[in-house]
Amino acid sequence: MKEILADIDGWRQAGKRVALATVVQVYGSAPRPLGAKLAVSEDGAMVGSVSGGCVESATVQEALEVLSSGAPRLVSYGIADETAWEVGLACGGTIEVFIEPLDW
């Protein structure tokens, strides 16, 4: 969390809305632990990570939808072994990510 605060502050000071994605469940050998975070600004910039590369772009898409709808959502990602190899991870886990607008 600490490492993403500066970017979040910058976005908010620039008047941009921000969504926060948090790993809330880890099955198998997922690369990032429970509580790992990714923040996304309304123009699609991101900071932090929820998976070490595998599902970040999908999470950014979901985060942008969350920002336009205003409703939080829980998303599950299976990290397929092939995908994992592509990004150099020896994982094959599943993670669940909670994505919410940072309006609290």
Binding site: L5, T22, A71, F98, W104
Partner: peptide, 20 residues
């Protein structure tokens, strides 16, 4: 709290009508 490196917990409702 995090900047000051204080022990703390943030609780979030993950589903249902009080989600978020």
């Amino acid at each position: 709290a995090i900047r000051e490196d204080e022990l703390c917990a943030v609780v979030t409702v993950l589903g249902g009508e009080k989600v978020g």
